[in-house]
């Protein structure tokens, strides 16, 4: 199980590097699609089929199609490498390195085995729906309002004159 997980993680890392170092935007979008599929595979491994399918439908079916359409619409061509190595981003990298060291240190000293375990693992769509409509009703409604605002905002931004 561990071997399979790490092989899958290696593939996600390769596809993620393919996204950020790619020169052709469309090819990067396809690499991102494969990255999403490896994450969905991780969901399946963790026993949460519902979220895996939602991941495939929303990300692969929705977001990637949107990104690919915009790339084609804008006519973004293969471009010369545009890596921007300034003092600002160099500082950012150093801070990120410290953050990574901190996280790895926390990982080594982890007390996560103290997290209490629930008696059983409910990963069914029914279990998630139960939680979503009882305990998490307010976040659910806020998310729906967020979606509405997002739709209106995207429409206004993409209109001819702002």
């Amino acid at each position: 199980m561990k071997t399979v997980f790490y092989i899958n993680a290696l593939f996600s890392l390769i596809f993620a590097l393919g996204v950020i170092f790619g020169k052709n935007p469309l090819r990067s979008a396809l690499s991102l699609l494969l990255f999403f599929l490896t994450i969905a595979l991780d969901f399946f491994f963790a026993g949460s089929e519902y979220l895996g399918f939602v991941q495939i439908i929303v990300y692969a079916g929705g977001i990637i199609v949107m990104i690919a359409f915009v790339i084609i619409l804008l006519g973004l061509k293969k471009e010369s490498p545009d890596y921007d190595i300034t003092v600002r981003s160099f500082t950012g990298i150093i801070l990120l390195g410290f953050f990574a060291l901190g996280v790895l240190y926390g990982l080594a000293k982890s007390v996560l085995h103290l997290i209490p375990k629930a008696p059983y693992f409910d990963t069914s769509a029914a279990g998630i729906g139960d939680a979503l409509f009882s305990k998490y009703l307010l976040p659910f409604e806020v998310a729906s309002i967020l979606l509405l605002v997002g739709v209106v905002l995207a429409f206004i931004f993409a209109k001819k004159e702002v």
């Binding site: 519902y50 979220l51 997290i115 375990k117 008696p119 059983y120 693992f121 939680a131 305990k135």
Partner: peptide, 9 residues
Amino acid sequence: YSNDTNPQV
């Protein structure tokens, strides 16, 4: 790890 539904939501 924690057999929990909350992170899935």
